[in-house]
Simulated assay, not measured.
Amino acid sequence: MLALNPVVLLIILYLFVNFLTMVLGCMNDGVKVETTFFKISAESLVYSFILQVSCLLFLYVLYRLFYKKISHNDLTLGNSWGAVLFIIQFTFALFNYKMGINTAGSTERIEGGSFTNYLFILLQPDNIAIIISLCLKSPFLFWLNIVAYTFSMLLRGWMSGIFIIFFLILSRYPYAKISLKSFIRLFFCLLILLAVMPAIIEAKWAMRTGVSALSFISGIPSYFTIDRYSMGTDYLLNRFQHVGHLALILDNSSALYREYSENKFSGYYWEGLPQIVISKLLNIEVNKVTTYLVGYFFNIPNPSWNINVGLVGWLFILRGESVFFVFYILAILCLPYYIVSKYAGKKLLNILSCFSIVFLFHGWLGAYVNLAIYACLISLLANTKIYIRSS
């Protein structure tokens, strides 16, 4: 029997992809970052990968320290939580579809104030779906909300929803063990998924660009070519790797430090929903480094996408000031880990640790901060006298 730990699987996945990218980069004297090939030294790639490994080991050790201290049962949420969550997700999906916003790669925004839009920003439907569905007592409501989450993500062109769901399921069943026979079945399912990968990627761009379903379906036969599989493999490697981004940042760290010192882009501490609210109230313009670097490296004005700066990338940029960054990262990791491990249990700690890799490791600090805040709030709220923990 094989035990599947979602955090360990994620670490293995990212180590494999980034190691492969590093090796290929050393062989080709450079790496393709997003859509452009950059000439990068082997030394920069190897050094960046070593720091990536150190960062992942640090995240794993911290996760295990809190995980081992949990001796109580996992937090269980009743049917009312699941029903309300489904309504929120369904309404959010319809709102996005009707207004044409929150689509991946799109810069469309609602002009002026919109109470509904502000409400969804406050509720963070995607984040609470991850947190609440994981803790639902009812298997039916869990899978119902998983379907709603998948529908909402695909409707907006976020194919990463499929990836997230896999680790969400593993986190819900942290004690699950599979036989060799079941493992072989999962392996064949993975092969099938890889076989239809070109169509999945094409569907992503179709949803982002507004291509009709009929046009997409009619073009399906043309998606399964050797060139499309090659492009698909290259695309997947680009999505999961960021050792190339780090090496590129390392080679330009002196210039980027000057840009940071001149306030060309905002500090790491401005990322997150509370920080955004504060910046709006104080009329402070926040220019995220993940977006700024697109313009810096690719010369694209007002980009609608960003690149993965990573935790290590911030260390390269900040140089001597990185000591404050390290303390900040420790704070946004340890405090949520403590609250979740104390009041929610292993399931929620598993998924929060997974996203410390998916979000934080990649450098999407704001996304992680938002998820961590709502994980803490729900953990604390569910432990009031109104709700009870399962025995």
Rank of each mutant, 00 (worst) to 15 (best):
residue 109 R to C: 06
residue 110 I to A: 07
residue 111 E to C: 04
residue 112 G to F: 07
residue 112 G to E: 05
residue 114 S to Q: 02
residue 115 F to C: 09
residue 116 T to N: 05
residue 116 T to V: 15
residue 117 N to W: 02
residue 117 N to E: 14
residue 119 L to Q: 02
residue 119 L to R: 01
residue 120 F to C: 08
residue 120 F to G: 11
residue 120 F to M: 08
residue 120 F to D: 08
residue 120 F to R: 04
residue 121 I to S: 13
residue 122 L to H: 04
residue 123 L to A: 15
residue 125 P to N: 09
residue 126 D to M: 15
residue 127 N to D: 12
residue 128 I to T: 07
residue 128 I to M: 06
residue 129 A to D: 10
residue 129 A to G: 12
residue 130 I to P: 08
residue 131 I to S: 00
residue 132 I to G: 00
residue 132 I to S: 00
residue 133 S to W: 01
residue 135 C to T: 06
residue 135 C to L: 14
residue 136 L to Y: 01
residue 136 L to I: 06
residue 137 K to S: 13
residue 137 K to I: 13
residue 138 S to F: 05
residue 138 S to Q: 09
residue 139 P to S: 13
residue 140 F to A: 12
residue 141 L to P: 02
residue 142 F to A: 01
residue 142 F to G: 00
residue 143 W to N: 05
residue 143 W to Y: 14
residue 144 L to E: 02
residue 146 I to S: 13
residue 148 A to S: 10
residue 149 Y to L: 13
residue 150 T to K: 10
residue 151 F to C: 12
residue 151 F to M: 11
residue 152 S to F: 00
residue 152 S to G: 13
residue 156 R to P: 07
residue 157 G to V: 07
residue 157 G to D: 01
residue 159 M to E: 09
residue 159 M to S: 13
residue 159 M to T: 05
residue 160 S to I: 14
residue 162 I to H: 04
residue 162 I to V: 12
residue 162 I to F: 11
residue 163 F to C: 03
residue 164 I to A: 13
residue 164 I to M: 14
residue 166 F to V: 10
residue 167 F to Y: 10
residue 167 F to G: 03
residue 168 L to S: 08
residue 170 L to F: 10
residue 170 L to R: 06
residue 170 L to E: 08
residue 172 R to P: 02
residue 174 P to W: 01
residue 175 Y to L: 15
residue 175 Y to D: 14
residue 176 A to I: 15
residue 176 A to V: 10
residue 178 I to V: 15
residue 178 I to N: 04
residue 182 S to Y: 08
residue 182 S to F: 08
residue 183 F to P: 09
residue 183 F to Q: 14
